[in-house]
Amino acid sequence: MNWTVGAYVAYLLIAVPITVWVASTLSHNGRVFLADVFDSNEQLADAINRLLVVGFYLLNLGFVMLYLRGGGAVADLTGLFETLSVKIGIVMLVLGVIHFVNVMVFSSMRRRGRADARRAQIPPTMNQPYASPYPPQPQR
């Protein structure tokens, strides 16, 4: 076995468990957030959570597999560590970016839902431009 094959094996032994750990952590802790986004509809939150986990695995493990060959040949132990640090660092950055995008999307959905709920609570006269929320004052 040469150094390049060793780098491949070490990369997969590190990148796949990191991906699994991040997915399980996000799934477990994101459930409460999703329940809030979907107005305490637990079934919908659980279904979306499972779909997000499947998509997360497909996207990230696909990236890990495609990125396996990146980096070229490894000549020695130093090269192995340098290659691993770059590859794992990039995988972690990709995981972070994907998480950030998911949080941004669901935060915007949450804000929009709350704004819609607030608009639904305002009396119809308040939605009219220049309508006063106070009763008319008697004329003197």
Rank of each mutant, 00 (worst) to 15 (best):
L93H: 07
Q137T: 08
V86L: 12
R69N: 08
A23T: 13
M1Y: 12
R140V: 09
H28M: 12
V9I: 15
S85W: 04
M65Q: 00
E42R: 11
V22S: 07
L51I: 04
M126V: 04
A15L: 05
L13Q: 07
D46Q: 11
R31N: 09
S27M: 15
F38Q: 09
L84F: 03
A73H: 13
A7T: 09
L52M: 07
G30I: 06
R118P: 02
S40A: 14
G71L: 11
S107V: 05
R118L: 14
G96N: 02
S24K: 10
P138C: 02
S107D: 10
T19S: 15
L80C: 06
V20Q: 03
V5F: 12
T83A: 08
N127P: 00
G96A: 08
V22H: 07
G6L: 13
S107T: 15
V94A: 11
H28G: 11
G71T: 06
L12K: 04
R31S: 12
D116R: 14
V37Y: 04
V5Y: 11
A45Y: 06
V101A: 08
G72S: 14
I88Q: 04
L77E: 15
R31L: 15
V54Q: 01
M65R: 01
S24G: 02
V9Y: 10
L34S: 05
N60H: 11
Q128T: 07
F81R: 03
Q128S: 08
M126I: 01
V22W: 08
L34Y: 10
R111H: 12
N60E: 10
L52P: 00
G55C: 01
A75W: 12
T78M: 08
G113K: 07
D39K: 13
E82C: 00
S108M: 11
D46A: 14
A117C: 05
F81N: 03
D116G: 08
T25F: 13
L68I: 03
N29I: 06
R110V: 01
Y130A: 07
T78C: 01
V20G: 04
S24F: 09
V53I: 03
R119L: 14
V32E: 15
R118G: 08
P124V: 02
F56M: 00
R31E: 13
Q137W: 05
S85R: 02
Q43P: 01
L77C: 08
A10T: 12
V54A: 07
V20N: 03
H28K: 15
Q137G: 01
I18D: 01
T25G: 09
N60W: 02
N29R: 14
V9N: 10
Y57L: 09
T83Q: 03
V94Y: 07
F33Y: 10
L80R: 03
T83H: 04
G55Q: 00
T78I: 09
M65T: 07
V32W: 14
I14C: 09
A131F: 08
N49V: 06
